[in-house]
């Protein structure tokens, strides 16, 4: 990914927020639902699941982040080539990343893995199914 492009995109978001220009309507359209009951995330589509959980650490643009440690980028990440790997990581966690098996059902994990593998500069065509996720639990 072109670093200049990333920078420009971030700056735009920041400016919008700082200026309070983001209208309520625009926000509502983008916003994933908040969970109002139960132990599973309410969001159902790949994009909204990503925005509800993964984005907390991997960030909105999937570029990851750097502080005293780091969150890896999922954007353009070669390790996503085999769908089994992200399915395994989401179910079981990796280092500080908690296992998310309790927050997401099989269909949700399939949705979000398919989403990440086909966005953020990842272009993997094959899809993983809820049944395949269930087999890995």
């Amino acid at each position: 990914m072109n670093p200049l492009f990333t920078y420009a995109k971030r700056a735009t978001t920041a400016t919008l927020l700082a200026g309070g220009l983001l209208t309520a309507a625009a926000q509502a359209a983008d916003e994933p639902p908040m969970t109002l009951s139960g132990s599973k995330i309410a969001a159902q589509s790949g994009a909204t699941i990503y925005q509800s959980i993964c984005q907390a650490c991997h960030q909105a643009d999937a570029q990851g982040a750097q502080g005293a440690g780091f969150y890896p980028a999922l954007a353009g990440n070669m390790k996503l080539a085999a769908a089994d790997f992200p399915v395994y990581v989401v179910l079981n966690g990796q280092n500080g990343m908690p296992p998310l098996r309790g927050l997401l059902d099989d269909a949700q994990i399939a949705e979000v893995v398919n989403y990440v593998r086909s966005h953020f500069g990842n272009h993997y065509q094959d899809q993983v199914t809820a049944e395949q996720v269930a087999a890995k639990r």
Binding site: P32, M34, T35, G38, S39, I41, I53, Q55, A56, L103
Partner: peptide, 19 residues
């Protein structure tokens, strides 16, 4: 813990306050 902890963390600070 639970879904809401992740959802709040995933928001921008301004969204967290607004919610």
């Amino acid at each position: 813990e639970g879904p809401n902890s992740y959802e709040f963390t995933a928001m921008t600070p301004a969204q967290r306050v607004q919610k």
